[in-house]
């Protein structure tokens, strides 16, 4: 399979899954039926768990790459946390954290 076709399929799959997820409540619960309580509870607890797993995913190279590269990622990640706890500005935390990482890997 060529790179372009695979890439197009990745977008298509993501689009379809996302649309299905967004449409499901309207399809299933469009009437008077409510959503089961278990699903509602999971709905509040699953997203943060997934986000944490995704952070691990982003930093997955740390145990397997060079110490230098791992250090760059961890330092920049710590900076993002610190900045956000301090100022709570999404733009600042992401912007400055990314800039810091880009500088560190060039040192």
């Amino acid at each position: 399979m060529s790179r372009e076709i695979h890439a197009a399929l990745v977008i298509a799959v993501c689009a379809l899954v996302t649309l299905a997820l967004r449409a499901l409540p309207f399809v299933c619960f469009g009437g008077k039926r409510g959503m089961p309580q278990r699903i509602v509870r999971l709905g509040s607890v699953l997203p943060p768990a997934i986000m944490a797993a995704l952070v691990v995913y982003c930093l997955k190279g740390v145990p397997y790459g060079t110490v230098r590269e791992g250090a760059c990622q961890l330092i920049a990640a710590a900076a993002v946390v610190a900045l956000h706890v301090w100022k709570r500005s999404t733009l600042l935390s992401i912007g400055a954290g990314t800039a810091l990482y880009m500088i560190l890997i060039r040192l």
Partner: peptide, 18 residues
Amino acid sequence: TGIDFSMTALFIVICVER
């Protein structure tokens, strides 16, 4: 090079908020 760290930063920010 390295701009993809913005994804890491985004997810970390979301976690800190949550």
